[in-house]
Design a protein around this nucleic acid. Sequence first.
DNA 1: CTCTGGCTATAACGCTCGTCATAGTCTAGC
DNA 2: GCTAGACTATGACGAGCGTTATAGCCAGAG
Lengths: 196, 196
Amino acid sequence: MAKSSAPSRERIVAGAADMISRRGLNATSIRELAKHAKAPLGSTYHYFPEGKQQLATEAVRYAGTAVERILRKELDAGPAAGLRAFLALWRGIVVDSDYRAGCPVLAVSVEEPPADEIPPALAAAAEAFEGWERLLAESLRAHGADRDQAAGVAALVVAGVEGAIAMCRAKRSMTPLDLVERQLEAVIAGAVGGGG
Amino acid sequence: MAKSSAPSRERIVAGAADMISRRGLNATSIRELAKHAKAPLGSTYHYFPEGKQQLATEAVRYAGTAVERILRKELDAGPAAGLRAFLALWRGIVVDSDYRAGCPVLAVSVEEPPADEIPPALAAAAEAFEGWERLLAESLRAHGADRDQAAGVAALVVAGVEGAIAMCRAKRSMTPLDLVERQLEAVIAGAVGGGG
DNA sequence: CTCTGGCTATAACGCTCGTCATAGTCTAGC
DNA sequence: GCTAGACTATGACGAGCGTTATAGCCAGAG
């Protein structure tokens, strides 16, 4: 009993993140998600008894921490190396999916919350963005940028990359991400060099 | 007969753009859209016989050219003024909607195209982005930036603002847009001043 | 007045949605 | 072998979807 076939559960979460990154949250149905993750529909409600909301929240957190892990590792070699890894990660997702997939965190961020409450998935998206920004800002500060400048540059990096991913999908071309990468490299160089 | 109550038609398109900017394309239903635009459901298929696809395409074009018009006007006073107007526009939309609305062009860009064809709405989104970038790049070049730098900065501006809008919605805070604005001002100043 | 044609109202089609309930299968522990 | 509990299979519920069809309204042309 205590086994709890975790691979199945994790496969569902990962599949949800992928599917949300392609179609958006509202357009992702649990039925198709189960099929995509090769899991029975009944299992999704077994593992995620709170339904779609819980599934979406865990998918966003899953993607957020996965990116955070990569970022944390690559930022050891400095902010510029972290930027390169961050971009390479998204580039791979966009290219491998033939411009069909993007960032699940962004996808959740751009859907209107119902009524007057903020759904946990949206809060998870905010936390993901904050985590990425914090890691970037810390690395920038550690390499000579002053506090305000670090926060600003970190926000610009995350916003610019997220926006560029969407632009690449619309244009079916990697040009926006390429252009943005070059600009962000210069901004980071200026921030760690020039200080403020 | 020749009257063709155009105000009704335009109200539907504008309502579609607003609704898409809040909920995304797939999650926007024609029934709710008609209600939101105070138009009868039958009228939507009368004005847009190709259905939702045509409606989405026109909505994206409507938003794209509206922004272009503002951009074109404000860029007369230079790239920095254009950036300020661009940001003020989105800031108004995000704040007035209490973080519920964003950019309809972005919303369309992040939804997976069906099968193997590219829907016209997605193509319209790409054109909207290209239009904004082109106007920004032209203004930058006219004020001393060299060709490559202008294209890069223009892409960064559009990507950064689009990404920041989404981040603001997730965090329910205008901080990302504020931070990005300051960074983009500096980038533009560097591009028109330093040249390359 | 009649008639025409743009617009609207209403109902229906087949489909998918999120969610729940129920019954069944399989394995781990005794 | 047997029971308990984790997992799966299946089907149903009401609701909403995009779209179409049909009939009705109502201003302007003749």
